[in-house]
Simulated assay, not measured.
Amino acid sequence: MLKQVKQMVSREYAKDLRAQLGSVPRTIDWTRLSPEDLEHELLELNQFVDWLRHTYGLPPQIIPPMWHRHWEMIWELSALRQQWLTCYDQQAKGNMGVVFHAEFAAARERLRDWVTISGSRLDRDRATRITPWPGGEAEGFTPTDSTEYPVENRNEDFVSFVEDQVLERQRAQDAEVQEIVNSEWSERP
């Protein structure tokens, strides 16, 4: 009987520990997310960025309203979010807040660089310019349209961006599935 009680307590402890630990934050590879995961992660990142800019009073020279239109900023802010989740996890060591703030200081400098490169501002935005290399671009390369647009309604634009990205990812996923189906079908006797 004592052995059964110990086993039951051990199982309950393990279950409670898993619930407390939760999932470990991992680096997000934006190129490999399913459409559903892409939508979820963009929405989560948007909440984090909004919290971050309000909590730390960050100016648009560090995080402009249209950050979501620039993948270089999405990657940087996503890495910062994952760092925050890791450092402020309930199982993190006591010094991890200092580690986060050291990383945050470095990330702010990189974000300033990304904002400068992208050309995104508080009141206007344009696609990040990609300088074509003479004789070094893939066939079909099209330079980005660097026309500036006024920032009018950031929230509406964010929702539209997420919808477009999810739809584009869904189309790519559907095309991959169709290619697999076609190749399997053509290999049949």
Rank of each mutant, 00 (worst) to 15 (best):
A19P: 04
A105H: 15
F100S: 11
L21R: 15
L58A: 08
T142A: 07
S160W: 00
T144L: 00
Y88Q: 06
Q20V: 11
A106M: 09
L85C: 12
E176H: 14
F158E: 01
N182G: 00
A14I: 03
P65K: 06
M8C: 06
L85R: 15
W30E: 06
R126A: 10
L80N: 01
R169H: 08
M1F: 02
R171C: 02
D145F: 07
E44Y: 00
R171L: 01
H101L: 12
M8Y: 04
T86A: 11
M66H: 07
D37V: 09
K3C: 03
S118M: 04
E103G: 10
R81T: 01
D113G: 14
L17R: 13
E148C: 11
V166L: 01
V49P: 00
G22M: 12
D145M: 05
W67V: 02
F48C: 07
D145I: 08
N182V: 05
E44R: 14
G140Q: 00
W185G: 10
R121N: 04
N182K: 13
L38R: 00
K15R: 14
T31L: 05
E41W: 07
S186Y: 00
E163S: 10
P134M: 10
L38M: 06
R81P: 04
E152K: 11
I63S: 01
L17E: 06
L167H: 06
I62T: 07
F48L: 09
Q61T: 15
R171E: 06
R129D: 13
L85P: 13
E179A: 09
H54V: 07
T147G: 07
V5C: 05
R124A: 06
V24W: 10
Q91Y: 06
L17T: 12
K6V: 11
I74A: 03
W114Y: 10
D89P: 05
V159G: 05
H101Y: 05
F104T: 01
L122R: 15
D145R: 04
A172M: 04
V177D: 04
G94H: 09
V98H: 05
R154F: 00
V151R: 01
E41K: 14
V24Y: 11
S160Y: 03
V99M: 04
L17I: 11
S78A: 12
D174F: 02
A127H: 08
R129G: 14
R112G: 06
R169D: 02
Y88T: 13
R129P: 14
A138N: 08
Y56T: 07
R110T: 12
R26W: 01
N153W: 00
G94R: 10
R169G: 02
A127G: 03
F100Y: 12
V177C: 01
N95M: 06
Q170T: 12
L167I: 05
G140Y: 01
F161T: 09
A127E: 07
